[in-house]
Design a protein around this nucleic acid. Structure first.
Lengths: 231, 231
DNA sequence: CTATTATTGTGTTGTTTTGACACATTTATA
DNA sequence: TATAAATGTGTCAAAACAACACAATAATAG
């Protein structure tokens, strides 16, 4: 009667690609793997799916274990399932990507996992197919950030337009025109002037904005076209 | 030594959402499930992942089994993993969606699976979480077709601009302005005039075009903005 | 054989958006 | 007090767009 009985059961892992932005560069939170095979090598943070745990819950568990954070931006990327992607035993990996404010995580748990923020431009070799995962995550981030306001997930609560522009320039690895960028961003109505100014600046202090959460949430799935087609 | 040993192995299925277009409506190829539980109920075509089979290969196997087709447009949608999504045993489902020319499939194998093309507007109740899968696939199709020329995958080799417009109107369930649509589509350079005309039309015969495959392939990942923001 | 009707192809126009660029303002430092 | 670096605002021509008008084609009805 049980049509399922003779089918193969597979190990299923969850791996998390965690993006952060330090004001200059786009970075990934990577760990040094703590068990064989490939012990000591650079890797994405991951873990196996628990028996009684939904995939999203598993991703949040793993993200919390490393960063100490809850309620962060997480999105399922895709599932990697090449037969030989793990040398020990066939293992599927359901990959999630997360965007966090790079200053918000728990330093203790990051340290205890031998984790580091590493610039995308200085990526070390990663285990298994994790480099491919990162490549596809970066493509997804670039795709999504061009059309939806996810960039804000990488910034602090208050930020200036020049900071936002630097973020976009880091994501796409290009230079944008300051004046056109400002005009486009302000026209979205997503930014609320806080009245305050950025005291850190060495020259003219830029206005600090915060996200219009209402508009952000209700119109998230709109197409915004943040990036110019040329330039 | 083996860190993997104590983790749970899970059943992994592949389910396929197969879109087609009959000239008027967007349709799905659905089957009547042939085993318990939910035997006889409407379902997506699916199957379990074989031990020595990559996920994409499994998807192609399942699509071929139902349609007799190879080399069709397939894309991984996402993986569904709620603990209780299958009442028999926890089963992950890696979901793919496919776009095919509705007239190109093997009628025999479709019949032998008790499969039917069913309009999205007359969708029956589906088993498990398959309705959610369809909903998310439709969202992805709408998203993608607005930005990339995937609509052509649903049309015959030769087609008219009015046919293409009807396809877009079916995907988005709205009416488009004929003249603006034509201008936008022709300006992409994706259409090649075959010199022939559609003989089926009862009135003025429309020009038959074919896809500029070179441009389609090399510029597929461009943003095209096929859909107007308003209207 | 002509008028009618449905459909297709092309053109126009005013408005909005865009990309490229100029100029003025602010603030720390020389 | 001058300088330099960064920020804020403005201009303008070109391109893109939505809304709409009109002409051409072909089956069919009278």
């Amino acid at each position: 009667m049980n049509h399922y009985a003779h089918s193969t059961r597979l190990l299923v892992a969850i791996d998390c690609i965690i993006f952060g932005f330090d004001g200059e560069e786009l970075k990934l939170l990577l760990i040094k793997r703590r068990f064989e095979p490939e012990k000591g090598k650079w890797s994405l943070m991951g873990g196996f799916v628990n028996e009684e745990e939904d995939l999203e819950v598993g991703a949040e568990r793993i993200l919390h274990e490393l960063t100490g954070l809850h309620n962060i931006y997480v999105e399922q990327l895709q599932t990697f399932g090449k037969v030989d992607r793990d040398p020990v035993e066939r293992t599927l990996s359901v990959v999630f990507f997360a965007l966090i404010n790079i200053h918000n995580h728990d330093e203790e748990s990051v340290k205890s996992h031998s984790a580091c923020w590493i610039s995308l431009k200085q990526m070390p070799k990663l285990i298994f197919d994790h480099e491919k995962m990162v490549q596809i995550a970066l493509e997804r981030l670039r795709y999504k950030a061009a059309l939806h306001p996810i960039g804000f997930e990488l910034l602090p609560q208050q930020f200036t337009i020049p900071q936002l522009q630097k973020l976009y320039e880091a994501i796409y690895d290009l230079k944008l025109d300051r004046r056109n960028f400002s005009r486009k961003i302000l026209s979205t109505g997503l930014l609320l002037d806080t009245g305050e100014k950025n005291v850190n600046s060495a020259t003219k202090k830029a206005v600090l904005y915060r996200l219009n959460k209402e508009k952000y949430e209700s119109n998230f799935n709109n197409f915004w076209y943040f990036m110019p087609v040329t330039t």
